[in-house]
């Protein structure tokens, strides 16, 4: 057998419990090669399920450990990592959960997974020093309106039909889950201006405003877009958010 087909077989069998142990393996005492190969299979799946459990603790809380591990095992077999940089692994977990029928009873689950994925992304994102009020004060209101703002690489925005921030916060001991109306839509901003990842609930229209800025719109254009979809959008408050959340890192006038 060529080495390529040997590693092909080994790789395939590592993720497919119905496949037998690959050919060409041996045990010194004639004991079951299948059982010994099972150590590798177990290492792969358990280590990756553990990695997902560490990345998605609130998802796990919401469905319980046993359900989470079963669900994660299916994900690992279907979508194993494609890079040794495991920090990226699980970016597609939310979409997987969306299609995972047994989890349909917890409708907010995919969005909670999206929020936790954004928090992970923010954790590892490039560092940058946020602008402060002085940086903005030197620019006149007129010019500010036509300026573009570069947002911190850690900034992530989530729009949800569910109370994703309140649910997440309740699992941090910041509220009572029983009192959260899971079907109240909430938008979230996730950012890490310094060392701590911060999750903020956004006021109406702010998600559109921030996404427009990320897309390269001027502050004026972004505010106009947000107002169109959301009449109660408050441009002054949204601008204030750029400062209070410390997510603006450069101003291009």
């Amino acid at each position: 057998m060529s080495p390529l087909s040997a590693q092909d077989q080994f790789a395939h069998a590592a993720l497919d419990p119905s496949a037998g142990a690959p050919d060409g393996l041996a045990a010194w005492n004639g004991s079951s090669v299948e059982q010994r190969f099972g150590v590798y299979r177990n290492n792969v799946v358990v280590s990756l399920v553990d990695a997902l459990a560490a990345k998605f603790p609130v998802v796990q809380d919401l469905v319980g450990e046993a359900f989470f591990r079963d669900m994660a095992r299916v994900y690992v077999m279907q979508q194993p990592p494609c890079s040794p940089r495991l920090a990226d692994y699980g970016a597609g977990f939310a979409e997987f959960i969306e299609d995972f029928t047994p989890a349909a009873g917890v409708p907010c689950l995919p969005d909670v997974a999206r929020l936790e994925a954004l928090r992970l992304r923010a954790y590892h994102a490039a560092d940058a020093t946020p602008l402060d009020a002085h940086d903005f004060a030197n620019v006149g209101a007129e010019r500010l309106f036509d300026s573009r703002v570069a947002l911190h690489a850690s900034a992530g925005i989530l729009t949800s039909r569910y109370a994703v921030v309140s649910v997440w916060a309740a699992h941090q001991g910041l509220g009572d889950l029983a009192r959260v109306d899971q079907f109240a839509p909430e938008d979230a901003l996730v950012a890490r201006p310094d060392l701590d990842v911060v999750t903020t609930r956004l006021a109406a229209g702010c998600a559109v405003f921030l996404r427009a800025l990320q897309d390269g719109a001027t502050i004026g254009e972004a505010a106009a877009r947000a107002s169109t979809g959301e009449p109660s959008f408050d441009p002054a408050a949204a601008f204030g958010l750029l400062l209070s959340a410390r997510i603006a890192i450069a101003l291009h006038c």
Partner: peptide, 8 residues
């Protein structure tokens, strides 16, 4: 192997 990282 073949685009998959096995973490083992």
């Amino acid at each position: 192997h073949a685009g998959v990282y096995f973490n083992d």
